[in-house]
Design a protein around this nucleic acid. Structure first.
Length: 510
RNA sequence: UCCGGAGUAGCUCAGUCGGUAGAGCGGGUGGCUGUUAACCACUUGGUCGGCGGUUCGAGUCCGUCCUCCGGAGCCA
Protein backbone atom coordinates (compact mmCIF):
# COMPACT_ATOMS: atom_id res chain seq x y z
CA UNK A 1 0.00 0.00 0.00
CA UNK A 2 1.36 3.35 -0.98
CA UNK A 3 1.96 5.73 1.89
CA UNK A 4 2.91 9.05 0.42
CA UNK A 5 5.16 10.93 2.79
CA UNK A 6 6.04 13.76 0.53
CA UNK A 7 4.82 14.98 -2.80
CA UNK A 8 6.48 17.39 -5.18
CA UNK A 9 4.88 19.01 -8.14
CA UNK A 10 7.12 20.26 -10.91
CA UNK A 11 5.74 22.14 -13.85
CA UNK A 12 7.88 22.56 -16.94
CA UNK A 13 7.09 24.63 -19.98
CA UNK A 14 8.18 23.84 -23.49
CA UNK A 15 10.70 23.65 -24.86
CA UNK A 16 12.82 21.87 -22.31
CA UNK A 17 15.73 19.70 -23.29
CA UNK A 18 18.55 17.97 -21.52
CA UNK A 19 18.85 15.90 -18.42
CA UNK A 20 16.84 16.83 -15.36
CA UNK A 21 17.88 15.33 -12.07
CA UNK A 22 15.90 15.03 -8.92
CA UNK A 23 17.68 14.28 -5.71
CA UNK A 24 15.78 12.01 -3.38
CA UNK A 25 16.36 12.88 0.27
CA UNK A 26 16.10 9.29 1.42
CA UNK A 27 16.47 5.74 0.27
CA UNK A 28 13.52 3.69 -0.86
CA UNK A 29 11.15 3.25 -3.73
CA UNK A 30 10.06 6.21 -5.75
CA UNK A 31 6.86 6.62 -7.69
CA UNK A 32 6.63 9.20 -10.42
CA UNK A 33 3.42 10.24 -12.12
CA UNK A 34 3.85 12.05 -15.41
CA UNK A 35 1.03 14.20 -16.66
CA UNK A 36 1.29 15.28 -20.25
CA UNK A 37 3.92 14.02 -22.72
CA UNK A 38 5.93 11.17 -21.28
CA UNK A 39 9.71 11.61 -21.26
CA UNK A 40 11.64 9.78 -23.93
CA UNK A 41 13.59 7.92 -21.32
CA UNK A 42 10.60 5.67 -20.85
CA UNK A 43 10.37 4.95 -24.53
CA UNK A 44 6.90 6.39 -24.93
CA UNK A 45 5.80 8.74 -27.62
CA UNK A 46 2.17 9.25 -26.79
CA UNK A 47 0.67 11.78 -24.47
CA UNK A 48 -0.71 10.42 -21.27
CA UNK A 49 -0.17 9.66 -17.68
CA UNK A 50 2.45 7.14 -16.72
CA UNK A 51 3.23 5.51 -13.44
CA UNK A 52 6.94 4.90 -13.21
CA UNK A 53 8.29 2.99 -10.30
CA UNK A 54 11.96 3.36 -9.47
CA UNK A 55 13.11 0.49 -7.32
CA UNK A 56 15.53 2.39 -5.10
CA UNK A 57 18.23 4.99 -5.23
CA UNK A 58 18.67 8.68 -4.80
CA UNK A 59 18.86 10.00 -8.30
CA UNK A 60 16.38 10.07 -11.15
CA UNK A 61 17.44 11.32 -14.53
CA UNK A 62 15.63 11.49 -17.83
CA UNK A 63 15.57 13.34 -21.09
CA UNK A 64 12.89 15.92 -21.69
CA UNK A 65 12.79 16.60 -25.38
CA UNK A 66 9.10 17.21 -25.80
CA UNK A 67 7.70 20.47 -27.03
CA UNK A 68 4.60 20.27 -24.84
CA UNK A 69 4.30 21.35 -21.21
CA UNK A 70 4.80 18.62 -18.67
CA UNK A 71 3.86 18.17 -15.07
CA UNK A 72 5.26 15.69 -12.61
CA UNK A 73 4.08 14.34 -9.30
CA UNK A 74 6.85 12.69 -7.37
CA UNK A 75 6.00 10.55 -4.40
CA UNK A 76 9.06 10.03 -2.23
CA UNK A 77 9.92 7.82 0.70
CA UNK A 78 6.85 5.66 0.44
CA UNK A 79 6.14 2.08 -0.46
CA UNK A 80 5.00 1.63 -4.05
CA UNK A 81 1.57 0.27 -4.90
CA UNK A 82 1.86 -3.52 -5.15
CA UNK A 83 1.30 -5.19 -8.50
CA UNK A 84 -1.10 -8.09 -8.18
CA UNK A 85 -2.89 -10.45 -10.54
CA UNK A 86 -6.64 -10.32 -10.99
CA UNK A 87 -7.08 -13.81 -9.55
CA UNK A 88 -5.64 -12.42 -6.29
CA UNK A 89 -8.00 -9.46 -5.79
CA UNK A 90 -10.16 -11.20 -3.18
CA UNK A 91 -7.23 -10.97 -0.79
CA UNK A 92 -6.77 -7.22 -1.31
CA UNK A 93 -10.22 -5.76 -0.64
CA UNK A 94 -9.95 -2.15 0.47
CA UNK A 95 -6.33 -1.91 -0.61
CA UNK A 96 -4.75 0.09 -3.37
CA UNK A 97 -3.21 -2.12 -6.04
CA UNK A 98 -1.77 -1.98 -9.52
CA UNK A 99 -2.93 -4.26 -12.34
CA UNK A 100 -0.91 -4.71 -15.52
CA UNK A 101 -2.82 -6.01 -18.48
CA UNK A 102 -4.86 -5.34 -21.58
CA UNK A 103 -8.24 -3.81 -22.27
CA UNK A 104 -10.78 -6.55 -22.97
CA UNK A 105 -13.86 -4.41 -23.50
CA UNK A 106 -15.12 -0.98 -22.46
CA UNK A 107 -18.38 0.86 -21.89
CA UNK A 108 -18.85 4.57 -21.48
CA UNK A 109 -21.58 6.56 -19.83
CA UNK A 110 -20.79 10.24 -19.92
CA UNK A 111 -18.68 10.95 -16.89
CA UNK A 112 -18.30 7.26 -16.08
CA UNK A 113 -16.13 4.68 -17.83
CA UNK A 114 -16.13 0.92 -17.31
CA UNK A 115 -12.99 -0.84 -18.43
CA UNK A 116 -12.86 -4.62 -18.49
CA UNK A 117 -9.18 -5.35 -18.01
CA UNK A 118 -7.60 -8.78 -18.37
CA UNK A 119 -4.13 -9.81 -17.25
CA UNK A 120 -3.99 -13.50 -18.10
CA UNK A 121 -5.23 -14.62 -14.71
CA UNK A 122 -8.70 -13.20 -15.17
CA UNK A 123 -10.84 -10.25 -16.15
CA UNK A 124 -11.99 -7.50 -13.82
CA UNK A 125 -14.10 -4.41 -14.24
CA UNK A 126 -12.34 -1.12 -13.52
CA UNK A 127 -14.50 1.95 -12.93
CA UNK A 128 -13.44 5.55 -13.54
CA UNK A 129 -15.46 8.53 -12.40
CA UNK A 130 -14.50 11.70 -14.15
CA UNK A 131 -14.24 13.63 -10.91
CA UNK A 132 -11.99 11.05 -9.22
CA UNK A 133 -9.15 10.95 -11.74
CA UNK A 134 -7.05 13.40 -13.68
CA UNK A 135 -8.43 14.74 -16.94
CA UNK A 136 -5.63 12.96 -18.76
CA UNK A 137 -6.46 9.61 -17.20
CA UNK A 138 -10.17 10.01 -17.93
CA UNK A 139 -9.52 11.00 -21.52
CA UNK A 140 -7.21 8.01 -21.90
CA UNK A 141 -9.91 5.70 -20.53
CA UNK A 142 -12.40 7.09 -23.04
CA UNK A 143 -10.07 6.55 -25.99
CA UNK A 144 -8.37 3.32 -24.94
CA UNK A 145 -8.94 0.71 -27.65
CA UNK A 146 -9.63 -3.00 -27.33
CA UNK A 147 -6.46 -4.96 -26.43
CA UNK A 148 -4.39 -1.85 -25.70
CA UNK A 149 -1.96 -2.62 -22.91
CA UNK A 150 -2.35 -0.52 -19.81
CA UNK A 151 -1.52 -0.23 -16.13
CA UNK A 152 -4.38 0.44 -13.73
CA UNK A 153 -4.00 1.74 -10.19
CA UNK A 154 -6.94 1.75 -7.86
CA UNK A 155 -8.72 0.34 -4.85
CA UNK A 156 -10.20 -3.15 -4.77
CA UNK A 157 -13.78 -3.27 -3.56
CA UNK A 158 -16.56 -5.77 -3.42
CA UNK A 159 -19.47 -4.87 -5.65
CA UNK A 160 -22.26 -7.20 -6.65
CA UNK A 161 -22.99 -5.13 -9.73
CA UNK A 162 -19.74 -6.43 -11.22
CA UNK A 163 -19.61 -9.89 -12.77
CA UNK A 164 -16.76 -11.10 -10.56
CA UNK A 165 -18.15 -9.60 -7.33
CA UNK A 166 -15.06 -7.38 -7.27
CA UNK A 167 -14.07 -4.29 -9.15
CA UNK A 168 -11.37 -1.64 -9.13
CA UNK A 169 -12.18 1.95 -8.25
CA UNK A 170 -9.55 3.52 -10.46
CA UNK A 171 -7.36 6.35 -9.23
CA UNK A 172 -4.95 6.33 -12.15
CA UNK A 173 -4.55 4.79 -15.57
CA UNK A 174 -1.40 4.57 -17.71
CA UNK A 175 -0.98 3.55 -21.29
CA UNK A 176 1.72 1.07 -22.29
CA UNK A 177 0.77 0.61 -25.92
CA UNK A 178 -2.28 1.64 -27.94
CA UNK A 179 -3.65 -1.15 -30.13
CA UNK A 180 -5.02 -0.10 -33.51
CA UNK A 181 -7.91 -1.96 -35.18
CA UNK A 182 -7.79 -5.20 -33.18
CA UNK A 183 -9.37 -7.75 -35.53
CA UNK A 184 -11.40 -9.84 -33.08
CA UNK A 185 -14.33 -7.75 -31.92
CA UNK A 186 -16.64 -8.67 -29.05
CA UNK A 187 -19.22 -9.89 -31.56
CA UNK A 188 -19.52 -13.27 -33.17
CA UNK A 189 -16.94 -14.64 -35.59
CA UNK A 190 -16.58 -17.69 -37.79
CA UNK A 191 -14.16 -20.51 -37.01
CA UNK A 192 -12.11 -19.89 -40.16
CA UNK A 193 -11.48 -16.27 -39.21
CA UNK A 194 -10.67 -17.17 -35.63
CA UNK A 195 -8.23 -19.88 -36.73
CA UNK A 196 -6.48 -17.40 -39.02
CA UNK A 197 -6.13 -15.19 -35.96
CA UNK A 198 -5.35 -17.98 -33.51
CA UNK A 199 -2.43 -15.97 -32.10
CA UNK A 200 -4.96 -13.33 -30.99
CA UNK A 201 -7.89 -15.66 -30.36
CA UNK A 202 -5.93 -17.08 -27.42
CA UNK A 203 -6.60 -13.81 -25.59
CA UNK A 204 -10.32 -14.48 -25.38
CA UNK A 205 -11.72 -15.54 -22.05
CA UNK A 206 -12.89 -18.89 -23.31
CA UNK A 207 -9.67 -19.88 -25.06
CA UNK A 208 -7.56 -18.82 -22.10
CA UNK A 209 -9.72 -20.97 -19.82
CA UNK A 210 -9.26 -23.99 -22.08
CA UNK A 211 -5.50 -23.53 -22.13
CA UNK A 212 -5.39 -23.27 -18.34
CA UNK A 213 -7.34 -26.55 -18.14
CA UNK A 214 -4.87 -28.11 -20.58
CA UNK A 215 -1.94 -26.97 -18.46
CA UNK A 216 -3.67 -28.30 -15.36
CA UNK A 217 -4.25 -31.68 -17.00
CA UNK A 218 -0.60 -31.97 -18.00
CA UNK A 219 0.45 -31.08 -14.46
CA UNK A 220 -1.97 -33.68 -13.05
CA UNK A 221 -0.55 -36.33 -15.39
CA UNK A 222 3.01 -35.56 -14.34
CA UNK A 223 2.02 -35.42 -10.67
CA UNK A 224 0.42 -38.85 -10.88
CA UNK A 225 3.29 -40.53 -12.65
CA UNK A 226 6.04 -38.78 -10.70
CA UNK A 227 4.40 -39.55 -7.36
CA UNK A 228 3.98 -43.21 -8.34
CA UNK A 229 7.71 -43.50 -9.02
CA UNK A 230 7.57 -43.47 -12.79
CA UNK A 231 10.75 -42.05 -14.31
CA UNK A 232 10.43 -39.55 -17.14
CA UNK A 233 12.44 -40.95 -20.05
CA UNK A 234 11.54 -39.13 -23.23
CA UNK A 235 11.63 -40.79 -26.62
CA UNK A 236 13.25 -39.20 -29.67
CA UNK A 237 11.35 -37.03 -32.13
CA UNK A 238 13.56 -38.00 -35.11
CA UNK A 239 13.23 -41.66 -35.93
CA UNK A 240 15.06 -43.65 -38.57
CA UNK A 241 12.21 -45.52 -40.25
CA UNK A 242 8.61 -46.60 -40.10
CA UNK A 243 8.58 -49.20 -37.36
CA UNK A 244 4.87 -49.55 -36.85
CA UNK A 245 1.81 -50.06 -38.93
CA UNK A 246 0.63 -48.25 -42.02
CA UNK A 247 0.25 -44.72 -40.71
CA UNK A 248 1.90 -42.11 -42.84
CA UNK A 249 4.96 -40.45 -41.40
CA UNK A 250 6.28 -36.97 -41.92
CA UNK A 251 9.56 -37.26 -43.77
CA UNK A 252 12.44 -34.89 -43.17
CA UNK A 253 16.04 -34.62 -44.26
CA UNK A 254 18.54 -35.61 -41.58
CA UNK A 255 21.91 -34.57 -42.98
CA UNK A 256 22.64 -37.21 -45.65
CA UNK A 257 19.75 -39.51 -44.86
CA UNK A 258 16.01 -39.42 -44.44
CA UNK A 259 14.41 -39.29 -41.04
CA UNK A 260 10.81 -39.35 -39.88
CA UNK A 261 8.99 -37.51 -37.12
CA UNK A 262 7.86 -39.88 -34.40
CA UNK A 263 4.34 -41.24 -34.48
CA UNK A 264 4.73 -42.93 -31.10
CA UNK A 265 7.40 -43.07 -28.44
CA UNK A 266 6.30 -46.49 -27.31
CA UNK A 267 9.03 -48.71 -28.69
CA UNK A 268 11.64 -46.49 -27.09
CA UNK A 269 9.60 -46.39 -23.88
CA UNK A 270 9.76 -50.20 -23.81
CA UNK A 271 13.55 -50.02 -23.94
CA UNK A 272 13.51 -47.41 -21.17
CA UNK A 273 11.24 -49.61 -19.04
CA UNK A 274 13.74 -52.46 -19.30
CA UNK A 275 16.33 -50.06 -17.86
CA UNK A 276 14.31 -48.17 -15.24
CA UNK A 277 11.24 -50.30 -14.52
CA UNK A 278 8.40 -47.79 -14.51
CA UNK A 279 8.83 -45.03 -17.08
CA UNK A 280 6.86 -42.60 -19.18
CA UNK A 281 7.57 -40.41 -22.14
CA UNK A 282 5.64 -37.25 -22.81
CA UNK A 283 6.00 -35.28 -25.98
CA UNK A 284 4.64 -34.31 -29.36
CA UNK A 285 3.61 -36.94 -31.88
CA UNK A 286 3.19 -36.53 -35.63
CA UNK A 287 0.81 -38.27 -38.00
CA UNK A 288 0.75 -37.38 -41.69
CA UNK A 289 -2.65 -38.99 -42.14
CA UNK A 290 -5.13 -37.17 -44.32
CA UNK A 291 -7.60 -37.24 -41.50
CA UNK A 292 -10.08 -34.40 -41.48
CA UNK A 293 -12.23 -34.88 -38.45
CA UNK A 294 -12.90 -33.17 -35.15
CA UNK A 295 -10.71 -35.76 -33.42
CA UNK A 296 -7.54 -35.41 -35.48
CA UNK A 297 -4.48 -33.21 -35.46
CA UNK A 298 -1.30 -33.84 -37.40
CA UNK A 299 0.73 -32.79 -34.36
CA UNK A 300 -0.52 -33.76 -30.93
CA UNK A 301 0.78 -34.57 -27.46
CA UNK A 302 0.79 -38.00 -25.97
CA UNK A 303 1.91 -39.40 -22.62
CA UNK A 304 3.02 -43.01 -22.79
CA UNK A 305 3.69 -44.89 -19.54
CA UNK A 306 5.38 -48.29 -19.82
CA UNK A 307 5.90 -50.73 -16.94
CA UNK A 308 8.15 -53.78 -16.77
CA UNK A 309 6.57 -56.90 -15.24
CA UNK A 310 3.09 -55.35 -15.55
CA UNK A 311 0.53 -57.74 -17.03
CA UNK A 312 -2.81 -57.16 -18.67
CA UNK A 313 -5.19 -56.95 -15.71
CA UNK A 314 -2.74 -54.77 -13.82
CA UNK A 315 -2.53 -52.53 -16.88
CA UNK A 316 -6.29 -51.95 -16.86
CA UNK A 317 -6.13 -51.21 -13.12
CA UNK A 318 -3.41 -48.65 -13.77
CA UNK A 319 -5.29 -46.96 -16.62
CA UNK A 320 -8.39 -46.69 -14.42
CA UNK A 321 -6.59 -45.29 -11.38
CA UNK A 322 -4.57 -42.90 -13.52
CA UNK A 323 -7.59 -41.43 -15.27
CA UNK A 324 -9.62 -41.06 -12.06
CA UNK A 325 -6.83 -39.16 -10.35
CA UNK A 326 -5.99 -36.81 -13.20
CA UNK A 327 -9.65 -35.92 -13.80
CA UNK A 328 -10.16 -35.25 -10.09
CA UNK A 329 -7.00 -33.16 -10.03
CA UNK A 330 -8.13 -30.94 -12.88
CA UNK A 331 -11.63 -30.51 -11.45
CA UNK A 332 -10.21 -29.44 -8.11
CA UNK A 333 -7.79 -26.99 -9.66
CA UNK A 334 -9.81 -25.34 -12.43
CA UNK A 335 -13.42 -25.13 -11.25
CA UNK A 336 -13.62 -21.45 -12.19
CA UNK A 337 -12.43 -22.15 -15.73
CA UNK A 338 -15.03 -24.87 -16.21
CA UNK A 339 -17.58 -22.25 -15.21
CA UNK A 340 -16.19 -19.81 -17.78
CA UNK A 341 -16.62 -22.33 -20.60
CA UNK A 342 -20.01 -23.38 -19.19
CA UNK A 343 -19.05 -27.03 -18.90
CA UNK A 344 -21.40 -29.08 -16.75
CA UNK A 345 -18.92 -31.04 -14.63
CA UNK A 346 -21.37 -33.48 -13.09
CA UNK A 347 -20.48 -36.00 -15.80
CA UNK A 348 -16.80 -35.61 -14.94
CA UNK A 349 -17.49 -36.05 -11.23
CA UNK A 350 -18.79 -39.55 -12.04
CA UNK A 351 -15.34 -40.61 -13.22
CA UNK A 352 -14.66 -42.94 -10.30
CA UNK A 353 -13.56 -46.54 -9.99
CA UNK A 354 -14.50 -49.10 -11.07
CA UNK A 355 -14.93 -48.58 -14.80
CA UNK A 356 -16.97 -51.12 -16.73
CA UNK A 357 -14.75 -53.57 -18.61
CA UNK A 358 -16.16 -55.30 -21.66
CA UNK A 359 -14.56 -57.54 -24.22
CA UNK A 360 -14.54 -56.84 -27.92
CA UNK A 361 -17.02 -59.70 -28.33
CA UNK A 362 -19.36 -58.13 -25.77
CA UNK A 363 -19.01 -54.79 -27.54
CA UNK A 364 -20.05 -56.42 -30.82
CA UNK A 365 -23.13 -57.77 -29.02
CA UNK A 366 -24.05 -54.32 -27.68
CA UNK A 367 -23.65 -52.71 -31.10
CA UNK A 368 -25.77 -55.40 -32.73
CA UNK A 369 -28.47 -54.97 -30.11
CA UNK A 370 -28.41 -51.21 -30.71
CA UNK A 371 -28.94 -51.69 -34.42
CA UNK A 372 -25.39 -50.88 -35.40
CA UNK A 373 -23.91 -54.28 -36.27
CA UNK A 374 -20.18 -54.66 -36.79
CA UNK A 375 -18.68 -57.71 -38.43
CA UNK A 376 -16.36 -59.70 -36.15
CA UNK A 377 -12.82 -58.70 -37.05
CA UNK A 378 -13.56 -55.10 -37.94
CA UNK A 379 -12.33 -52.23 -35.80
CA UNK A 380 -14.83 -49.78 -34.37
CA UNK A 381 -15.56 -46.46 -36.05
CA UNK A 382 -16.27 -43.20 -34.33
CA UNK A 383 -20.02 -43.77 -34.30
CA UNK A 384 -19.54 -47.27 -32.89
CA UNK A 385 -17.46 -45.88 -30.04
CA UNK A 386 -20.13 -43.29 -29.28
CA UNK A 387 -22.86 -45.96 -29.09
CA UNK A 388 -20.71 -48.07 -26.77
CA UNK A 389 -19.77 -45.15 -24.53
CA UNK A 390 -23.40 -44.07 -24.24
CA UNK A 391 -24.20 -47.42 -22.62
CA UNK A 392 -22.30 -46.37 -19.51
CA UNK A 393 -22.18 -43.37 -17.19
CA UNK A 394 -18.39 -43.35 -16.95
CA UNK A 395 -15.40 -44.29 -19.12
CA UNK A 396 -15.44 -47.86 -20.40
CA UNK A 397 -12.54 -50.24 -21.07
CA UNK A 398 -12.91 -52.37 -24.19
CA UNK A 399 -10.37 -55.21 -24.27
CA UNK A 400 -9.22 -58.25 -26.24
CA UNK A 401 -9.55 -57.06 -29.82
CA UNK A 402 -8.96 -59.26 -32.85
CA UNK A 403 -5.20 -59.46 -33.22
CA UNK A 404 -5.45 -58.68 -36.92
CA UNK A 405 -6.58 -55.09 -36.30
CA UNK A 406 -3.91 -54.36 -33.70
CA UNK A 407 -0.22 -53.56 -33.96
CA UNK A 408 2.48 -56.19 -34.37
CA UNK A 409 3.84 -55.78 -30.84
CA UNK A 410 0.58 -56.71 -29.09
CA UNK A 411 0.76 -59.94 -27.11
CA UNK A 412 -1.79 -62.62 -28.00
CA UNK A 413 -4.34 -63.82 -25.47
CA UNK A 414 -3.16 -67.23 -24.21
CA UNK A 415 -6.80 -68.41 -24.09
CA UNK A 416 -7.55 -67.40 -27.66
CA UNK A 417 -4.67 -66.65 -30.03
CA UNK A 418 -7.00 -64.76 -32.38
CA UNK A 419 -7.28 -62.05 -29.75
CA UNK A 420 -4.71 -59.46 -28.76
CA UNK A 421 -4.20 -58.17 -25.22
CA UNK A 422 -5.06 -54.66 -26.25
CA UNK A 423 -7.40 -52.30 -24.43
CA UNK A 424 -8.97 -48.99 -25.42
CA UNK A 425 -10.48 -46.57 -22.94
CA UNK A 426 -13.50 -44.82 -24.40
CA UNK A 427 -14.48 -41.48 -22.91
CA UNK A 428 -18.18 -40.75 -22.32
CA UNK A 429 -20.34 -38.38 -24.35
CA UNK A 430 -19.03 -39.48 -27.72
CA UNK A 431 -15.43 -38.38 -27.27
CA UNK A 432 -14.16 -41.82 -28.20
CA UNK A 433 -10.80 -43.39 -27.56
CA UNK A 434 -8.58 -41.28 -25.35
CA UNK A 435 -6.30 -44.10 -24.18
CA UNK A 436 -5.02 -47.09 -26.10
CA UNK A 437 -2.80 -49.67 -24.48
CA UNK A 438 -1.83 -53.27 -24.22
CA UNK A 439 0.52 -55.96 -23.05
CA UNK A 440 3.53 -56.25 -25.34
CA UNK A 441 4.76 -59.43 -26.98
CA UNK A 442 7.81 -60.47 -24.95
CA UNK A 443 8.72 -63.70 -26.78
CA UNK A 444 11.36 -63.25 -29.47
CA UNK A 445 10.08 -65.89 -31.85
CA UNK A 446 6.46 -64.78 -31.58
CA UNK A 447 7.52 -61.22 -32.23
CA UNK A 448 9.57 -62.20 -35.28
CA UNK A 449 6.55 -64.00 -36.66
CA UNK A 450 4.33 -60.95 -36.11
CA UNK A 451 6.85 -58.72 -37.86
CA UNK A 452 6.86 -61.02 -40.85
CA UNK A 453 3.06 -61.25 -40.89
CA UNK A 454 2.80 -57.46 -40.95
CA UNK A 455 5.34 -57.31 -43.76
CA UNK A 456 7.72 -55.15 -41.76
CA UNK A 457 11.49 -55.16 -42.31
CA UNK A 458 13.46 -56.71 -39.47
CA UNK A 459 16.67 -54.73 -39.77
CA UNK A 460 15.46 -51.38 -38.38
CA UNK A 461 13.80 -53.26 -35.50
CA UNK A 462 16.90 -55.18 -34.43
CA UNK A 463 17.47 -52.90 -31.45
CA UNK A 464 13.87 -53.50 -30.38
CA UNK A 465 14.30 -57.24 -30.76
CA UNK A 466 17.32 -57.02 -28.46
CA UNK A 467 14.89 -56.22 -25.65
CA UNK A 468 13.56 -59.82 -26.11
CA UNK A 469 17.07 -61.28 -26.37
CA UNK A 470 18.47 -59.87 -23.17
CA UNK A 471 16.29 -60.45 -20.17
CA UNK A 472 12.86 -60.20 -21.73
CA UNK A 473 9.98 -59.77 -19.25
CA UNK A 474 6.22 -59.33 -19.50
CA UNK A 475 5.43 -55.63 -19.76
CA UNK A 476 2.59 -53.33 -20.64
CA UNK A 477 1.87 -49.70 -21.34
CA UNK A 478 -0.56 -47.22 -22.80
CA UNK A 479 -0.76 -43.88 -24.50
CA UNK A 480 -3.12 -41.04 -23.59
CA UNK A 481 -3.88 -38.32 -26.11
CA UNK A 482 -3.77 -34.97 -24.36
CA UNK A 483 -5.93 -33.06 -26.85
CA UNK A 484 -8.74 -35.61 -26.97
CA UNK A 485 -8.75 -35.68 -23.20
CA UNK A 486 -8.93 -31.88 -22.98
CA UNK A 487 -11.74 -31.86 -25.57
CA UNK A 488 -13.69 -34.32 -23.44
CA UNK A 489 -13.02 -32.50 -20.16
CA UNK A 490 -14.05 -29.17 -21.69
CA UNK A 491 -16.96 -30.58 -23.70
CA UNK A 492 -15.54 -29.16 -26.94
CA UNK A 493 -16.78 -30.06 -30.38
CA UNK A 494 -13.30 -30.13 -31.94
CA UNK A 495 -9.77 -30.83 -30.72
CA UNK A 496 -8.38 -27.79 -32.52
CA UNK A 497 -9.28 -25.56 -29.55
CA UNK A 498 -7.38 -27.74 -27.08
CA UNK A 499 -3.87 -26.90 -28.28
CA UNK A 500 -2.44 -23.37 -28.60
CA UNK A 501 -1.51 -23.60 -32.26
CA UNK A 502 -3.19 -26.58 -33.91
CA UNK A 503 -1.65 -28.30 -36.87
CA UNK A 504 -4.28 -29.78 -39.15
CA UNK A 505 -4.44 -31.30 -42.60
CA UNK A 506 -4.93 -27.87 -44.19
CA UNK A 507 -3.53 -25.63 -41.51
CA UNK A 508 0.11 -24.87 -40.78
CA UNK A 509 -0.39 -21.20 -39.85
CA UNK A 510 -0.11 -19.23 -37.68
C1' U B 1 -8.36 -39.37 -50.98
C1' C B 2 -13.87 -39.55 -51.24
C1' C B 3 -18.87 -37.21 -50.21
C1' G B 4 -21.46 -32.68 -48.99
C1' G B 5 -21.56 -27.18 -47.97
C1' A B 6 -19.68 -22.16 -48.30
C1' G B 7 -16.74 -17.76 -50.27
C1' U B 8 -20.46 -10.29 -50.85
C1' A B 9 -17.55 -4.05 -46.26
C1' G B 10 -12.38 -5.21 -41.05
C1' C B 11 -16.18 -9.22 -38.82
C1' U B 12 -21.21 -11.92 -39.04
C1' C B 13 -24.53 -12.20 -42.85
C1' A B 14 -28.93 -10.69 -46.39
C1' G B 15 -29.23 -9.81 -51.57
C1' U B 16 -36.21 -12.03 -54.64
C1' C B 17 -37.10 -13.39 -61.62
C1' G B 18 -30.36 -11.57 -64.47
C1' G B 19 -31.55 -4.79 -64.21
C1' U B 20 -28.16 1.47 -59.52
C1' A B 21 -24.34 -3.00 -53.53
C1' G B 22 -27.53 -3.76 -48.22
C1' A B 23 -28.01 -4.50 -42.61
C1' G B 24 -25.91 -5.31 -37.80
C1' C B 25 -21.30 -5.13 -35.43
C1' G B 26 -16.40 -2.76 -35.65
C1' G B 27 -13.85 2.25 -36.82
C1' G B 28 -14.83 7.90 -36.44
C1' U B 29 -17.75 12.24 -34.19
C1' G B 30 -21.29 13.74 -30.48
C1' G B 31 -24.64 12.44 -26.02
C1' C B 32 -25.48 9.82 -21.30
C1' U B 33 -22.79 8.92 -13.29
C1' G B 34 -23.75 1.74 -12.84
C1' U B 35 -22.78 -0.37 -17.84
C1' U B 36 -22.90 -6.18 -18.48
C1' A B 37 -21.69 -8.60 -26.41
C1' A B 38 -24.50 -1.26 -22.92
C1' C B 39 -27.61 2.25 -25.40
C1' C B 40 -29.05 6.74 -28.75
C1' A B 41 -27.86 10.04 -33.12
C1' C B 42 -24.80 10.99 -37.24
C1' U B 43 -20.77 9.08 -40.18
C1' U B 44 -16.97 5.91 -42.57
C1' G B 45 -16.34 1.50 -45.23
C1' G B 46 -16.84 -2.93 -51.54
C1' U B 47 -11.22 -6.32 -56.71
C1' C B 48 -19.19 -9.58 -54.71
C1' G B 49 -12.50 -15.63 -53.98
C1' G B 50 -9.46 -15.91 -59.16
C1' C B 51 -9.78 -16.75 -64.45
C1' G B 52 -12.84 -17.67 -68.63
C1' G B 53 -17.81 -17.99 -70.94
C1' U B 54 -23.35 -16.85 -72.01
C1' U B 55 -26.06 -12.05 -72.20
C1' C B 56 -27.82 -5.42 -74.17
C1' G B 57 -26.64 -6.23 -68.97
C1' A B 58 -23.83 -11.21 -64.17
C1' G B 59 -23.09 -10.88 -56.92
C1' U B 60 -27.02 -13.86 -59.43
C1' C B 61 -26.52 -18.51 -65.03
C1' C B 62 -22.39 -22.06 -67.06
C1' G B 63 -17.15 -23.98 -66.91
C1' U B 64 -12.64 -24.22 -64.29
C1' C B 65 -9.16 -23.35 -60.43
C1' C B 66 -8.16 -21.73 -55.35
C1' U B 67 -9.40 -21.31 -50.20
C1' C B 68 -12.28 -22.55 -46.02
C1' C B 69 -16.05 -25.53 -43.31
C1' G B 70 -18.57 -30.31 -42.08
C1' G B 71 -18.36 -35.65 -42.50
C1' A B 72 -15.98 -40.64 -43.80
C1' G B 73 -11.67 -43.96 -43.67
C1' C B 74 -7.23 -44.24 -40.28
C1' C B 75 -5.96 -43.33 -35.42
C1' A B 76 -4.67 -40.79 -29.69
Amino acid sequence: MRQVVKMMRVAMSAPVAGVTRFMSPSCGPLSVLFHGPVPRAIGQEKTGTCLWEVSSGHRLGFLVGETQPMELEICLGGVSVPHIYIEEVAGHVGQQVTLKGWLYNARYSGKLVFLQVRDGSGIIQCVLFKNDVSDQAFELARTLTQESSCIVTGTVREDKRSELDYEIAVSDLALVHMAVDYPITPKEHGVAFLMENRHLWLRSRRQAAILRIRASLIRAIRNYLDSHNFVLVDSPIFTPAACEGTSTLFETQYFDEKAYLTQSGQLYAEASAMALGKVYCFGPTFRAEKSKTRRHLTEFWMVEPEVAYLQFDGLMDLMEDFLCEIVAGVLAERASDFAVIERDITALQRVVKPFPRITYDEAIGILTAKGQPVAWGDDFGGDDETVLANEFDRPVLVHRYPAAVKAFYMKRDADNPKLALGVDLLAPEGYGEIIGGGQREDDLNELLQRIDEHGLPREPLEWYLDLRRYGSVPHSGYGLGVERTVAWLCGLHHVRETIPFPRLLDRLKP
